[in-house]
Amino acid sequence: MVKDKLAQSVMLGLCLFSILMVVTIAVGLYLKSSPVLENKSLWSLLSSSEWRPMKGEFGFFPFIIGTVWVTVLAIAMAFPISLFTAIYLTEYAKSHVKKFVFPALDILAGLPSVIYGVWGVLVIVPWISNRFAPHFVDFSSGYTILAAGIVLGIMVIPLLVSLFIEVFSSVPMELREASLALGATRWQTTHKVVLRKTLSGVAAATVLAVSRAMGETIAVLMVCGCVIGIPKSILDPGYPIPALIANNYGEMLSMPLYESALMFAALILFAVVLVFNLLSRIILYRLEKTQQ
């Protein structure tokens, strides 16, 4: 019995530790970024485009815009592909088709970020530079927001597909059959019943994918170009927040304010991801509950 009690308290402790980790990260990042927050107003940090660490000017606007561009592009590309793949897998596919598709998605999901980066550098960047961009601009190195968006889009496909499949599976079979029995085709059933029923779940899954895309670092860093400035088109280079942190973290130790600014960048990332995750997870949990 004593062993039982002891084990129980150890396990409770570990549980609380895991929950507290979220809080610890938030507090730690906040404390570290407080010097720059005392120095500058939050608004000027977020809206200024001046980035001169040596002079103590930290405007995050170009990086925020870069993150938004890349993320939006990635989701815009991944969303339709993932949605239709997931619909096919849940509503149409026979099990022998699934046997081929699931391992393929597994592989996509399992490949490390840096591998996608290599692929982007070897395949996507030259393609943009030689084939795609010449139609629109005189010269592009290929290291662009578009390249980052494509690579990132591919990386979120497996996540989106698996979330969508989970969401669609929460719709009871009888509901589909009720629609089919009235003479609806599969597609009519899918978009008028299944999609309608799971609209919130689809939205939640997308938000989750957005938050994943925003934090992705290495692959984006390798293909985005990393030029500070506000991009005018998707054929301009961009500089998302994670790339900023990764590129500059080593060299800033001598300047406390610079370090603080980078920690503030991490805090922004963490805060946005936290809010998006909480929102979408809570919606998805609800959906799961109604299913049971």
Partner: peptide, 18 residues
């Protein structure tokens, strides 16, 4: 479960910095 899902979503660069 919520905390773990959120932690799962935290970008690795944030883990690195933290």
């Amino acid at each position: 479960r919520l905390a773990c899902d959120v932690l799962f979503g935290v970008p690795s660069i944030v883990y690195g910095a933290f």
